[in-house]
Structure formats: C-alpha cells, structure tokens
Design a protein around this nucleic acid. Structure first.
Length: 804
RNA sequence: GCCGCGGUGGCGGAACUGGCAGACGCGCUGGACUUAGGAUCCAGUCCUGAAAAGGGUGCGAGUUCAAAUCUCGCCCGCGGCACCA
C-alpha cells in the first residue's frame, strides 16, 4: 500500500494557504532573495508537464533559501493578453476576459496542486486594468522621452493572425507563434526606439550571468558592426549617395553600386528609358515575401538603373544598380559593391558581367571573393598596407576630405509595437484629426478596453476596435476638437516587460512600484524559464528596464542577475510533445496517480535542469517507490514514529553518512544540480535502512534535506515525529567536515597504467607507506615480479601508479 | 555556410582542478516473504571469457606513469543565425 499522499498534500497546501506561510516581508532584516519564474500564458489547454519543470526548480531554491535565513520573494502571475483567447472569442462569441479568467483559474488550480511556495498575495494579471494602467504609464514615459513614434514602415503582416509582428517574432519568414506565413506591407505603426539602447543592451550583457548561448543570440541580434559612411557623388549632379561599409579599405575596388529597390534615390535619378525596367523590378521585389527572399538566396537578381556615381578615390564613373540583396532597412539601403572582396558582390558582378578588381592580395578573385587579410594593391596611397592599416588610413582620409566618416551600425531595428487586435493594452493617447498626438493625463489611466459585440478583425489591417466608432471617435472635451483613440493595441510583450517589478508592490495605485521597495528587492537574483525568449521577452524587458532606470523608477541597470534556461521535456518517444503525435503527458493525471512530491522529485531527477530530456512513466515509479520507502522508514501503520528510531548517540559511520549527504545536497542545490542531490538522498535512505537502530537526530536532519524537494511528505513526517514548528523556516543543517572524509581510504594501484588492485590505508598516510602497501598487494606482485621499478606516483588518498 | 551546445551500458543519466568509468534510478536476472504478487525486502547486472585476462566513454591520431576529461583532424545529433554590406 502506498503512503497517503493525497491526504498529506491537501492538508499542507491548505495549511500554507491559510497561514500565509510563504509571504514575503518587505524590508525584513534578513537578506533578500528574489527568485522568479517566467510567468505563463494561461492557455485553454491547461498546464503542460514542461511548465512545472522551471517552477519546481525555483521552488526548491526558494524553500532552501528560506531555510538558509533569506527573506525570499517568490511570486507567480499571468501573462494573459494575447491572441489565443481572442481567436477563441471569435469562434464562440465569448468575451476574451471570460475565457482568460477561466483559463487562469485552471492554471492556478493546477499550479497550486504542486505545493509551490509562492506568495499568492502578490499574484498579478497583465489584463487587469489596475495592472495595465502601469503598462500604459510606462508607454507614456517612453513616448515623452521621444522613444515612441508613429511611422509608415514596411511591416511583417501575418494574414492568418491578422496582425503585424515584430521582427523578433518572425522566424524564417513565418510567425513565431503558429508558423503562419508573413508578408511585407507598408503600414503606419507605433515604433519603439530600442535601437537607441543598442549599445547599452550589448555592453551590459557583461553585467549579468546568462547562459552563453543567450548572450550570443542577443549579441548577434543586436549585430554591432564598425565601419564607415562614404559619400559617393552622383555623376552629373550635386548630390551624393551615402553608403555604409565595414570595409572602407577596399574602396579602390568599388566598381559599381547597388541600392535597395525601395531606395528613394530611384524616384529622382532613373532616366526615362530605364524607368519601366526599374519599376518592374521594384514591383516584383516588393511583393516578394520574406520567405521568398531568403529561400531564393542563391540566385541574385537586379537591374541597371541608368545612372552613375563617382568613386571618390579612383574618380571613375561606376554604374548604379538596384537589387533586393540590398536591404532598405540596414545601413543606408545602398552599398558600394566590391566584387573582388565580398562574396555577394562577386556573385552579382559575375552574373551581370561587372568589373572585378583585386585590391587586396592573397586570394584568387577569378574564382571567388577574397575576404581575408592581405597587402593592398591597385589602391593608390593605400598600396603596401595591410587591411587594418588601410582602414585607419582611408577613414582618416575620407574624414579630412569630407567624403565619409567612421560609424557603427546595428542589425537591431526599432520595435514594431502595435497590433491590429483587440485583446491587448490600448494606447493611452488621443489622436487629433491633424495627426497630432496627445497623451491622456495620468489621472485618466487606465484607458480601458471597451466591451465589444464582434471580435472579427477587418482583415485589412484594422483591429476589431474599429468596429466600435462610438468608442474610437469623440469630441475632445478640452479642445472641442474631433479626436480618436488608436484602434491598435500593444503586443503581448508589453505586459511581460516589467511584471517582475509589479510583484514587488502589486497593489500600489499611486506608482508602478514604491521606490523603497524596489531598492529592497531588486534585482532579480535568479530567473528561470525557457530559452525561446532569448531575443524576445529578454531583450524587450532589458530595454524597458533601462528606460525606467534612466528616469529613476528603478535602481539597477539590469533586471535579471542570473538567468537559467530549463531544458525541454520530450514525450516518451523522444519527440516533442504534441497533440498530433499523441505523446502528451497531462500533469493532472500524474498528480492524481503519484502526488505532487513524486512529480516534483521526478522532474528534477530526470537529468540536468538545463538539458532536453524525455519523459518516462516507468522512471517516475522509481521516485514514487523512493518516497514510499521514506514513509515506511519513519512511519508505522498506526501513523506513529517507527520504534527503531531512537534517541541514541549516532556512531561514526552514521554521522559520516549524514554529513556527506548534507554536504552533497547543499552543494548540488547551490549549483542547481538537483538530479545528483536526489541521488544522494537515495543513497542515504538505502544505507540507513540497513541500520538496526536509527538515531533520531540523524533522521530528523534528513527531513530538512528532503524538504525543498518533497515539502508535503517531509512536513508530515516531521509532525508525526512530534516536532515543532514546521520545517519551512527551520535552519538548514550544516555539515561538519570532520565527518566527510573517511578515516580509512581505499587506494587503487596501477601497474604501467592498468588497474591491478586496491588496498586500504589510513587517511593521509605518507607516500612511502602507500607505495609499500601497494607493492604488497598480491595481484600487483604478480605484475611487478622480476621487473625493475622505474618510477612510482602517489595521488593522495586515491591512487598509486607503478611504472616498470 | 557561420555561431553555440552535445555524443558514456538495454534506457534516463553519474564521474571535483587528468587519477579505481558506469553513482543514483529504470529495466532485466536470481532469491526471500506469500494462497497470490504487477506489492515489499535482499543480492546481481558495461561487453567478451569457465577462469586468468582482455576490450570499452561517436571515429582516427597525439600528449601523459595515467585521458570520458587535454591537443589536432573527422563523423553524427540538437539549438540559434542566415544576402545585415
């Protein structure tokens, strides 16, 4: 019969809830520790076994830290704006708020069943007007700083989702959510100037402890490159064509230029006889989706535009072409083409028969572009220099002649910040008929979402709010002028950009967070969540945080000190869990069958937290067995403490077992190695089972160690043992290093690199004694007999190596 | 193509700065207790071999008394980026 986990877990969860055991205390004398989960989007499908993985890890840390004397902030909330609820509303006509509320209730119930030690008084919900009042407020501050603007830009329009998406939300030409095609369109949108923070977002990665791959992804996404602007005079004109290049040293090799099809210069300079060809090309390029653009990456296309520029160092007339391999959104939308030393230009020149000139020796430019270092040739005053010297010299020369200057460019683009959907934060501002914008006064925040009868978006790029003219359009009471609200709403990321601040002061109606409380709790000490947010949430949140830092709302330059990504949990077949594969494990079923403690321990025992690993229903039985063994170790059938647990002085071997376990479990928790910590708990139980009499003091220490992993069963046994108060805040055991190292050690013996035997000897025995003992081992004698011993090595308390 | 991470028994995974490879769990085998066992407890379990011994951490070299661990060259898998001038 298995232990009564259902009863126990219900009892303790009720107790924790009622007595608010895990309430975080603002300004407590204890050192603070803020451990944060990436809060979930409460989908209709309910909790997935992948969700709890990170939550269990943070809960172990939270419970452990409390026992180490920390004042722990460990909160949970809901990232509840977003498309799925709205799509469901479309299908059923139910208000997204109702659906969202229902989903949150399901998620809350499921999450609570794990016995997590959240401070539920701090629960937040991004769709609560009291919450999004402050999301809107932050937007207003961003606007006031000149970091929010409206612009007619080429956007990523997803017809299936009927909204635009940020660049970060488009993966290989498809939407990040759902994988639907995305096309390019021009639309007027709210943009956030994240590019103004590019350098700081890059630099400050050095301040935080994030996994290297996440840092690398952010660095790549920000994409800093050093180079130069160069101004090419346009032939027979007073104007210039400005380009960005990272290789100003190759300027003598620039034999033609290319501008993006969208480049404004084309309107002005293309001569009549070339106009139709250029326009035809523009039209074709603009209708190409991003997907087409990337997939057809091999074959270059383009047309000659019929006019020329002057290479400022060779003074040669060079043709200007247009091609979609040059992007309007990077640099200036125009390049100098150096086919000898840039593979893309080489391919283009090769295809269209353009001149290829070698200006850096070292390659064979008839075969491919040479992009490595070398000595400058055919380059006038740069000849004989290497690439680095030439770059310095040419930038100096360009600056002196006002033909260019050094500059830094970023791949990062401004953040497309509006969505043509209903279920998001409205923009807190009025737009007058002349296009001027006025922020709503703070006293009028939040600007709430109006109720809606129909959720159908127009499909042409307007949100369902456009169906409500009575809300959208009004006479401004202050000016008497006609004004309207923006029918767009903010993207889902808005609410998650700052939620970690709201947990600190969740009910404050006068400020998004009290500055004193913010100073006490920030920054987040440990943040655990999925890696899929590498350049989305994590970049956006860092951006908003820096804005708030600049206006003095927060006190730290970075929000998250340490980030850990939990690995994905696959189905039993080793494939990603999905409904279509039928390999989805439902957490409710597991909880029902084995209970929360088993579930918690199993997910931590599966393997390293950060690794992707498959679920195994067979293996969870092993953990269930372990907890039953623990129960039976302590508790009789009459629910009293086992009689073989007695108040006796423990012997050395038992003390050694305990202190080794304390040491290992402590070290492993500190380093998030929960799988090996649990292995050590199992070793303890296996060993202690063999003892006839179990010293009470040792057994109680074990319960402390088990507590963060399996809080319900450990508290229950603690209570059965008659101990008070509960374990949650009692001090974590401290190991005594005297008991950790054995007095007698077993030492291995190698002869010529092969293991030939072992012997026992007291700890730290002198090397000479070890060698003597090693040579005395029977099997070792067999291998050294009749041979001269040339050399011996002794590794203290581990090994003796003999060379003959 | 570029960047990052990884490859260890039948399976999930251990192994601190090079020092007894396979901890712990699953599975499997045998035993005990049982009317019964898919419960529980105990023992065994990398491969070959009766044993002695030999082989073994993706493959091939190398350094070392000693390599899963360090170096070089490959192969495979996963994740990210992908005309960013």
């Amino acid at each position: 019969m298995s232990y009564p986990f259902r009863k126990i877990e219900e009892k303790w969860q009720k107790h924790w809830e009622k007595s608010k055991t895990f309430r975080a205390i603002d300004f407590s004398e204890k050192p603070k520790f803020y451990v944060l989960d990436m809060f979930p989007y409460p989908s209709g499908a309910g909790l997935h076994v992948g969700h709890p993985e990170g939550y269990i890890a943070t809960d172990i840390i939270a419970r452990y830290k409390r026992k180490r004397g920390f004042n722990v902030l460990h909160p949970m909330g809901w990232d509840a704006f977003g498309l799925p609820a709205e799509n469901y509303a479309l299908q059923t006509g139910t208000h997204p708020r109702i659906i969202t509320e229902k989903n949150i209730n399901t998620f809350r119930r499921q999450i609570k069943a794990f016995g997590f030690s959240y401070d539920w008084d701090r629960e937040i919900n991004t769709t609560d007007p009291k919450y999004y009042k402050w999301t809107q407020w932050i937007f207003q501050q961003i606007y006031k700083m000149g970091l929010a603007y409206q612009a007619e830009v080429p956007v990523n329009w997803c017809p299936e989702l009927k909204t635009v998406l940020a660049n970060e939300e488009v993966i290989n030409g498809k939407s990040e959510r759902g994988g639907y095609p995305v096309i390019r369109m021009f639309m007027r949108q709210w943009m956030l100037k994240i590019t103004a923070y590019a350098d700081r977002l890059l630099q400050d990665l050095d301040l935080v402890d994030f996994p290297e791959n996440i840092k690398e992804m952010q660095r790549n996404w920000i994409g800093r490159s050093e180079g130069a602007w160069i101004y090419f005079p346009i032939a027979d004109s007073k104007n210039t064509l400005k380009v960005f290049t990272t290789r100003p040293d190759t300027l003598f090799g620039a034999t033609y230029m290319v501008v993006a099809p969208e480049h404004p210069i084309l309107q002005k300079y293309v001569p009549a006889e070339y106009r139709s060809a250029v326009e035809a090309y523009q039209k074709q390029a603009l209708t190409k989706s991003d997907l087409d653009r990337t997939e057809l990456s091999h074959e270059k296309t383009g047309v000659f535009c019929g006019f020329y520029a002057i290479n400022p160092v060779t003074n040669k007339k060079i043709p200007i072409w247009t091609s979609d391999y040059v992007l309007m959104t990077y640099g200036t939308g125009a390049i100098m083409a150096v086919p000898g030393h840039d593979q893309r230009d080489w391919e283009f020149a090769h295809k269209f028969g353009l001149e290829i000139v070698e200006v850096i020796s070292g390659g064979e430019i008839t075969k491919e572009a040479w992009t490595g270092d070398g000595i400058l040739v055919n380059s006038g005053f740069l000849n004989g220099m290497n690439v680095k010297q030439a770059q310095k010299t040419i930038i100096h020369w360009l600056t002196k002649h006002k033909l260019g200057e050094a500059t830094v460019q970023y791949k990062l683009r401004d953040w497309i910040f509006s969505r043509q959907r209903y279920w998001g934060e409205p923009f807190p501002l009025k737009i007058f008929e002349d296009g001027t914008v006025e922020l709503l006064p703070e006293s009028e925040l939040p600007l709430e979402l109006p109720p809606l009868e129909k959720y159908e978006p127009s499909g042409t790029g307007e949100s369902p709010l456009a169906n409500l003219p009575s809300w959208v359009s009004f006479i401004d009471p202050n000016t008497g002028k006609r004004a309207s609200f923006d029918t767009n709403t903010m993207p889902q990321w808005a609410g998650s950009c700052w939620y970690y601040l709201r947990y600190i002061d969740p009910h404050n109606d006068n400020a998004l967070v009290d500055p004193q409380k913010e100073k006490y709790w920030m920054p987040v000490d440990l943040y655990i969540g999925g890696a899929e947010h590498a350049v989305l949430h994590l970049l956006y949140a860092r951006f908003w945080h820096k804005v708030l830092y600049d206006i003095g709302v927060v006190s730290t330059p970075e929000p998250f000190m340490k980030l850990v990504n939990q690995g994905m949990i696959l189905g039993e077949d080793g494939e990603k869990m999905s409904k279509s594969r039928g390999n989805v494990i439902n957490p409710d079923d597991i909880l029902e069958k084995y209970g929360a403690d088993t579930f918690r321990m199993y997910e931590m025992f599966m393997g390293p937290l950060t690794k992707t690993k498959p679920w195994s229903t067979a293996s969870i039985e092993g953990i269930f067995r372990f907890l039953n063994r623990v129960w039976n170790l302590f508790v009789t059938e009459d629910l009293t403490l086992k009689p073989d647990i007695q108040d006796i002085t423990p012997d050395t071997s038992t003390l050694s077992l305990l202190h080794k376990t304390i040491f290992k479990v402590t070290e492993d928790i500190e380093n998030l190695r929960f799988n090996t910590a649990i292995a050590q708990l199992m070793i303890f139980v296996n060993e202690i089972y063999k003892k006839e009499i179990k010293p009470r003091e040792i057994m109680l220490s074990f319960l402390h160690l088990l507590n963060p992993f399996a809080p319900h069963i450990s508290e229950e046994i603690w209570a059965i043992a008659g101990c008070q108060p509960e374990l949650a805040y009692l001090d974590w055991p401290i190991y005594d290093s005297n008991y950790i190292k054995d007095e007698i050690v077993t030492i291995g013996v190698q002869v010529n690199g092969k293991m030939r035997g072992t012997f026992e000897i007291e700890k730290n025995a002198p090397d000479s004694d070890c060698v003597k003992a090693a040579l005395a081992v029977e099997n070792v004698q067999k291998f050294v007999a009749g041979k001269e011993i040339k050399k011996t090595f002794v590794v203290k308390n581990k090994l003796v190596s003999i060379v003959t």
